[in-house]
Design a protein around this nucleic acid. Sequence first.
DNA 1: CGTCTATTTGAATGTACTCAAAAGCGGTGG
DNA 2: CCACCGCTTTTGAGTACATTCAAATAGACG
Lengths: 191, 191
Amino acid sequence: MQEMIRRHISQYIELNDEQFDYFLSLTTSRKLRKKQYLLQAGEVCRYESFVTKGCLRAYSIDEKGKEHIVQFATEDWWIADLNSFLTQTPAFYNIDALEDSELIQIEKNALEQIYSCLPQFERFFRIKIQKAFTSLQSRLNESLSGTATDRYLSFISKYPSFEQRLPQHQVASYLGISAEFLSKIRQNLSK
Amino acid sequence: MQEMIRRHISQYIELNDEQFDYFLSLTTSRKLRKKQYLLQAGEVCRYESFVTKGCLRAYSIDEKGKEHIVQFATEDWWIADLNSFLTQTPAFYNIDALEDSELIQIEKNALEQIYSCLPQFERFFRIKIQKAFTSLQSRLNESLSGTATDRYLSFISKYPSFEQRLPQHQVASYLGISAEFLSKIRQNLSK
DNA sequence: CGTCTATTTGAATGTACTCAAAAGCGGTGG
DNA sequence: CCACCGCTTTTGAGTACATTCAAATAGACG
């Protein structure tokens, strides 16, 4: 599970044993049970979390009590309320586990220590966030331009495995539609 | 106008005269007339552009020929098709000028040279893109959770000056609604 | 086995879109 | 300086996409 994050980081920057051990020494690991919160809106997001096992979601709750999923994270993904983490202010999003999960976590102080000792990590997180940005932009663009059916088809082609793994109403929440309507969309597609 | 970008960068990282001059020596400046393209979908996005004057937009065009604005950029903003710029592949978005504009541009090679000579620029662009990410996330969340009226109100409170500066149908395109419907929303709000 | 949650189905409703036409506004040329 | 042209905004009628609410069915888990 440490190997997992090492391979992940090594895709973007060079890292020798000593450097990696230093990085690891500043992280902690953690297990979450299904349905357990990693973060609740209003708390400060203390960690960026790398998922080594399981599946989590970040979501907001609107005035009517409805949930809106902004991100899923499975193996090899990072998850946090980034704004809360960076500014150490109360979180807007909730994060919880959709399956029993395992994480490697890093605190803000530790991350800044890493940035100063191992500046290539600036690069690593710059690249990661750039990728996250462009895919978020494409998701926004789809939600501006396409119909719910378009977005659903795009979702299952981008993330085929999620289709198996996630309950339908979670996918509906991610797509920004009601669970009932997703059911109707699927019914239509199957003919 | 060089002063403008210097102040902008100095908000995030330390920069002495020599370093700034080196940075500047790797940039070029450019003027655009209203309606002129900075980038057309299909071209490779060669530059990240910092706006010192004027206003630009990045937008996609869907199958039906409709435009969807993903970003505006006025003074002190950066604009690019980031995915195209980073991977040097054909752009998905178009970028053009909504007003006569002036830019400071940097090419990918130049930027990488800067990253290696002045590593604090890694930090600068990491921070910039993190902010862009969190505000994009909040925009997506609004489009998942709220009605068009909510999004319009949020838009004018976040960017009051845009309201003056931009034609209404551009705002509508940014919000993901038709120009006619925005007109109807405004009519309702004014009573 | 029973309970709780997830999915499906249907009817009524609401939100936003399309198309068409009219009104407003700004710039340009005669 | 005014008339005209093009573009933006408004208004209205009809339509499409997605929601809500309710009820029935199906699955999952202790």
